[in-house]
């Protein structure tokens, strides 16, 4: 991907904003983006759940509910 392309547009609240154009690759994918395949071992999987899906599976990370858990 070369230089980023920016344009000036109007946002929904009427303000002028500078926006970034497409940064994804042109064309159509020929295979599915099987990102889960990168998780090879049981440890990787558990680590993924505890970090990526920390909203439910991390003991010490509760996002907006952190305060509630401590109370």
């Amino acid at each position: 991907m070369g230089e980023y392309v920016y344009e000036e547009k109007e946002s929904f609240d009427g303000k002028k904003v500078k926006v970034l154009g497409p940064t994804y690759e042109e064309g159509k994918p020929d295979a599915k983006n099987d990102w889960e395949a990168k998780l090879g071992s049981p440890e990787d999987r558990l680590n993924y759940l505890k970090t990526a899906l920390r909203y439910w599976y991390s003991k010490d990370w509760f996002g907006s509910e952190k305060r509630k858990q401590e109370a």
């Binding site: 994918p29 599915k32 983006n33 990102w35 889960e36 990168k38 998780l39 680590n47 993924y48 970090t51 990526a52 899906l53 909203y55």
Partner: peptide
């Protein structure tokens, strides 16, 4: 393009181990 499970959205937004909303 189809197949946006909530796990995939999470991954696309932040990567594999920093997957995030």
């Amino acid at each position: 393009v189809v197949g946006f499970s909530h796990e995939t959205i999470n991954y696309l937004l932040g990567g594999l181990f920093r997957a995030s909303y």
